[in-house]
Design a protein around this nucleic acid. Structure first.
Lengths: 193, 193
DNA sequence: CCCTACCCTTAAACTATCTTAAGGCTATTT
DNA sequence: AAATAGCCTTAAGATAGTTTAAGGGTAGGG
């Protein structure tokens, strides 16, 4: 059963007894998501923490010209959620959309809060998870303000090699903050070098 | 005593009894930091979580041309730490430097880990602190890839009005990912509009 | 299995931002 | 109080990245 994959994931952090595992499983929802299906849209409150079992998602915002800007991808064994909207219950400004047919496990806010109270070590695990995501994001910010588009692209390939193969270049360009046309030029320059 | 300010800060999240407060206080170090003094340099391991009581700090990286790039500021009641280096004990790629004469409270890694074990609700508090910082950083990333320099500057003024008054424009430019000369032009354009 | 929608590339003209250089102003340090 | 280092501005020339337009290739959904 897919839920076991989430338990296995938690077990890589800390041990959980049978009862605790049961409790976690009882609060999870498994969903199959089609390609291009959205699990969060701008203007709606983000109701779930989402764990990716299979497939791949993008998180993006849309600017006033209608252009999408990816700020995050999430594939197998990763979390994706608009944390701000989730905790504040305010409408999100972001979209969460499947890039591939996917399977996810979701936990609702009330259930997650209940789990935090029932199993305090989950506080610690999610603290560590978010610390790791924070470090990743901080590197991304530094890259964005200090490197050229070509350098950012090369770093992306190095840092997310499998993702780079799965994703269309348009999506990578959006993540790097450049146009697909310019990414195409960068790739040509790198190839002919 | 300055340490009380840290306790007060924790108390805004959750209650702590006398004994718990004593324990926290016993693990803190108070330091006075001069303007331009560094509390972390590239190549060194980040040994402390740092809480700002008074003053202001910048976190930055230096690129291969020798240019500084600010990725974060921290003023009163804010935390500043290279979380990645702190937890992994690997050398940092970042600098932490006082922009004003400052007073800080620091907690060493072993002491913080001890506090997490002794007072589990600290796990929860730091989870929330980092979630909030994560949201802030995520907005910053979205801004960086989707807005012009002028838009980013206006957003910065709106979002950090007091910081904007305290900081020299060179530091703001570095945070926005542009040159001071170009920020000067933006300010002129806005003024003559 | 075909059709449509998406994806990738190229290139030319345009725009945002950087670089360099120089002058004056302000605030710390000695 | 003088000296020095940092800060802010202006402007001209250079470069990185965008826009528009157009053609061909590929894949997934009906």
């Amino acid at each position: 059963m897919e839920t076991q994959l989430l338990i296995d994931y938690f077990l890589t952090y800390l041990p959980f007894n049978e009862e605790e595992q049961q409790l976690i499983v009882s609060k999870t929802i498994i969903r199959n998501i089609k390609r291009r299906q959205m699990i969060l849209q701008e203007g709606f409150v983000c109701k779930h923490y989402t764990f990716v079992i299979k497939g791949c998602f993008k998180m993006y915002g849309i600017d006033n010209k209608g252009t999408e800007h990816n700020i995050q991808f999430a594939a197998e064994n990763d979390w994706i959620t608009d944390i701000g909207s989730f905790h504040s219950s305010k409408p999100s400004k972001l979209f969460l959309e499947a890039i591939e047919p996917s399977v996810i496990i979701q936990i609702e806010k009330n259930d997650l809060y209940f789990l935090y109270l029932s199993i305090p070590k989950l506080d610690r695990i999610f603290k560590v998870i978010i610390e790791n995501k924070y470090v990743e994001l901080q590197n991304h910010v530094l890259q964005n303000i200090s490197s050229t588009a070509q350098e950012r692209y090369l770093t992306f390939l190095e840092q997310y090699p499998t993702l780079a193969l799965r994703l269309p270049n348009t999506q990578i360009a959006s993540y790097l903050g450049i146009t697909p046309e310019f990414l195409s030029k960068i790739r040509k320059d790198l190839a002919t070098k």
